[in-house]
Amino acid sequence: MAHAYDFPPAVEGTSAPSRLTSGRARGRILDAAYELFLQRGIRDVGINELITRAGVAKATFYAHFTSKDELVLAYLERCHQDMTVEAIMAETGRRTEDPTGRLMAIFDVLDGWFRQDDFQACAFVSTMLEMGPAHPLGIASIDYLAQVRAFIRALAEEAGLEQPDVFARSCHILTKGSIISAVEGDREAAIFAKRMAASLIRDHGGDAPMAP
């Protein structure tokens, strides 16, 4: 999910170098990257702009990140903490303990995300499409996306669905497709995807209610 960071630029000075600790400097850089990469993608944002936005010296930037790619990997990890499998697992678990119900709840979680005013595309889908599946950043994005598919497969096994791997691949296509549709402007994409997921569950021998 996207978050707005409204902090004034801070300039490192020789008068109080201890005020900007190593952890705080790294946090500023990541905050700037998180905001700019989500808004504009990876290639469009340069290191100099990131340094200016973070309000750190160039030497400080390179003390924490030896390259832009290394910063992007840290950015993807932050996105992973914000809205990926852990967040989805936790939220679906709060809604129901039934594995079939949790599969359906995935799309309720996505629906809430899509309807946020500051909704941005999934960082992993965006980065993979921008950088390509063979680029190290694309590979990292694919690995994060695979964790969602593994979660879906685990729920499918718990629900006793037939061919849980095939189901997980198919359901994962629905989640990624709904994200793309939401970016296009269809804020009801998750609702339509949920209906298809219910049909998919029944096709694999499960008992899913008809989605509204």
Rank of each mutant, 00 (worst) to 15 (best):
T66C: 00
A90N: 06
A140T: 05
A63N: 13
A140K: 06
V109A: 12
T100C: 11
F124K: 01
A90Y: 06
M83P: 01
T96D: 13
P99Y: 08
G101M: 03
A59L: 08
R102G: 05
G138I: 08
D82I: 15
A57W: 06
T66N: 03
A140F: 01
R115M: 04
L103F: 01
R102E: 02
S126F: 07
P133Y: 02
E70T: 15
G55T: 09
L73P: 00
M128I: 00
I88N: 05
K58W: 00
D118S: 11
R78I: 10
G138E: 03
F114V: 05
V85K: 10
L137D: 07
A140C: 05
R115E: 13
C79E: 13
W113C: 07
F65D: 04
V125G: 00
T96G: 11
V109D: 00
E97N: 08
S141A: 15
D108H: 12
Y62A: 09
G132H: 02
L129H: 03
Q120K: 12
M128Q: 09
D82V: 15
E97T: 09
I139P: 04
A54W: 04
M104H: 00
F119R: 05
D69P: 00
V125L: 12
E86K: 14
Q120P: 00
T60R: 12
I142M: 11
M83D: 14
I139W: 05
I106D: 01
H135D: 14
C79H: 11
Y75P: 00
I106R: 08
A54M: 06
R94N: 08
P99S: 07
T127N: 01
T100V: 15
Y62I: 07
A74K: 06
T60V: 07
T100N: 04
D69H: 06
S141K: 09
R78P: 01
V56L: 12
G132W: 05
E70G: 13
L73N: 03
V109L: 06
F119Q: 07
F119H: 14
A54V: 05
